[in-house]
């Protein structure tokens, strides 16, 4: 059964009575994420099936629904991304994995740029946005099971993507794909959302996090709902997206619905360690506008 919901309801005072039946033997319950017998065995990482369902509901489906609106809010590439891609050597093959609406595709005719994205809605926007670029093309793909040839890329950029994977194992798998697609000595720029937002423009000074936590349960998994424009209180959370339809008058239109996107926000050094774990040598690592960014290289095989 697949439950699709974007409703959130504030929690109020409630009284519940629980009757417990003590049992013995290995646990056979279906609440793997809440069950301590499972978390003890697997370091607390989410089981793959649960992680996959969570991403389907709170990443893939949300992006399909918000694609049009999202795209109108994403025009300019980040300066540090441009700085990186501008330095790419002529004749190089560049993959933009999780390209969104293609805002990071450069208007350069001397490199091949392949934009990969999972959301079909965003890809349609991307295709339109890169129409004027000579050597650029779009492919619908999944970073976990990417249908591109090994070592096909000289350069990869993966901007604001890895934080949408809900288990450590899946974040590692995504980075393994980047490693597999890079040629030896090929370079990648990877950025993720940082838990620490104190040095970015994200925080609104007038706003402080809600003291009463809102939580949403997805497939037996309790996830806190983040209060936008405040400091992150958790590492795994749901971030609201207030959906507005495209209108000619930008002031018109109250939000029609709020959708929740899953994020795993990163601590300092966390992305670096994951990269090293899959054989990507970290060359530079920096904090930029609320994101942790890593420039890494595929090591030569020893």
């Amino acid at each position: 059964m697949k439950v699709i919901t974007s409703d959130t309801v504030p929690r109020q005072t409630r009284i519940s009575l629980t009757f417990r039946w003590t049992r013995s033997g290995p646990c056979e319950c279906s609440y793997k994420t809440l069950c301590d017998s499972v978390s003890k065995a697997s370091d607390g990482d989410l089981e793959d099936q649960i992680a996959s369902n969570l991403e389907e509901l709170h990443v893939h489906q949300v992006y399909e629904q918000i694609a049009g609106h999202f795209s109108t809010t994403r025009h300019k590439p980040w300066p540090r991304v441009v700085e990186f891609t501008q330095r790419v050597q002529p004749g190089a093959v560049l993959l933009d994995l999780g390209c969104g609406n293609g805002k990071n595709i450069l208007h350069r005719s001397d490199i091949l740029q392949i934009a990969g994205e999972r959301s079909s809605g965003l890809l349609v926007e991307c295709k339109e946005n890169i129409r004027e670029v000579n050597a650029a093309d779009c492919v619908r793909l999944d970073l976990l099971h990417s249908c591109l040839r090994d070592s096909c890329a000289d350069v990869i950029i993966c901007i604001a993507v890895i934080h949408h994977f809900s288990s450590r194992a899946r974040r590692l798998q995504a980075l393994t794909t980047i490693h597999r697609l890079l040629r030896t000595n090929g370079q990648a720029l990877i950025t993720v959302w940082a838990k620490d937002q104190t040095k970015s423009n994200y925080l609104l000074k007038t706003k402080s996090p809600n003291t009463e936590d809102r939580q949403v349960t997805v497939a037996g998994l309790n996830l806190p709902v983040h209060e936008n424009r405040t400091q992150f209180q958790y590492k795994d959370l749901l971030v609201p997206w207030k959906l507005r339809r495209k209108t000619d008058n930008k002031l018109a239109g109250q939000p029609e619905s709020t959708l929740l996107r899953f994020y795993h926000v990163f601590e300092e050094g966390e992305l670096d360690r994951l990269c090293e774990e899959v054989g990507l040598e970290v060359e530079r690592s920096f904090y930029e506008e609320g994101n942790w960014c890593v420039v890494c290289k595929k090591r030569e095989v020893q």
């Binding site: 295709k127 779009c138 793909l141 099971h145």
Partner: peptide, 14 residues
């Protein structure tokens, strides 16, 4: 479709 190849796979296929 519309010039975009869809290379997505089901989890069961990989």
């Amino acid at each position: 479709s519309k010039g975009i190849p869809n290379m997505l796979l089901n989890e069961a296929e990989v």
